[in-house]
Computed example of a mutant assay.
Amino acid sequence: MNVLYPSFPVRRLPTMALIAFLGAVVAGVYGAVHDQISFAISPEYFTRMKFRQFAWADVGLPPRAFASEVGFLGTWWVGLVAGWFAARAGLAELPRSDRWRCTPRCFGIVLAAAAVVGSAGALVGLVEARSGDLSSWDDVRTLLEVEDVPGFVVVAYLHGGGYLGAALGLILAIVYVRRCVTRAAL
């Protein structure tokens, strides 16, 4: 099996593209919901940083709706990559019935890992925020003019943990997909 560079029958390409597309949609929706939670914890994470990063996509939505848009735009590509690698790991070669049973579970593994590790990141951020010493965040406070540094710290760790969790989830999902392929071959 070759996961990193293309070497597959061309007839599998539409299925692989569909799985990658579904991954992008699932991840984008997850990001939109995730950023609603993040916005509730630290609006400044968005108003002082994320909205500036995604200014090109600002079509005049209210801040909470724009946060969801930012969440979608910030995560769809993670799902695209995860879907592509899961398809390459064997989802695309499974018989149709097995494929559509394994695909939601595969995405569920990635989502669950992102949520669990993201939550763990938020807890780490909460511990740091409550430590009383946020001097390591002075540059951020000054550069972005952040007033609620503790909330900003929690959300920064939440987001970092979520991306780390998605990477870990992809590894676990690939292991799961390989097991599906092995079972289907029996």
Rank of each mutant, 00 (worst) to 15 (best):
G83H: 06
F85R: 00
F85P: 00
A87R: 02
R88Y: 11
R88Q: 13
R88C: 09
A89S: 15
L91M: 08
L91E: 06
L91A: 06
A92E: 15
E93G: 15
L94P: 06
R96D: 15
D98W: 14
D98I: 11
W100K: 00
R101H: 11
C102T: 10
C102G: 06
T103M: 15
T103C: 10
T103R: 04
R105M: 15
C106I: 01
F107L: 08
F107H: 03
F107E: 03
G108M: 13
G108P: 13
I109T: 02
V110H: 13
V110W: 13
L111E: 06
A112E: 11
A112I: 07
A113P: 07
A114T: 00
A114G: 07
A114K: 02
A115E: 12
A115W: 15
V117C: 06
V117K: 01
G118K: 06
S119Y: 14
A120C: 09
A122I: 05
L123N: 01
V124C: 09
L126F: 12
L126T: 06
L126S: 08
E128D: 13
R130N: 13
S131H: 09
G132H: 12
G132A: 12
D133G: 09
D133V: 02
L134W: 10
L134N: 07
L134P: 05
W137A: 08
W137C: 02
W137E: 04
D138K: 04
D138H: 10
D138T: 05
D138R: 09
D139N: 13
D139C: 10
D139W: 12
D139M: 12
V140C: 10
V140G: 08
V140S: 12
R141T: 08
T142K: 10
L143A: 14
L143V: 14
L144K: 04
E145N: 14
V146C: 08
D148S: 03
V149F: 13
V149R: 02
P150I: 00
P150W: 10
G151K: 00
G151R: 01
V153N: 05
V153F: 11
V153A: 09
V153Q: 06
V154M: 08
V155M: 03
V155E: 03
Y157F: 14
Y157R: 01
H159N: 11
H159L: 07
G160C: 01
G160Y: 05
G161M: 04
G161Y: 07
G161S: 04
G162A: 11
G162L: 07
Y163A: 04
L164H: 05
L164F: 10
G165I: 01
A166M: 05
L168W: 12
G169C: 11
G169I: 03
L170K: 02
L170Q: 03
L170E: 03
L170C: 07
L170R: 00
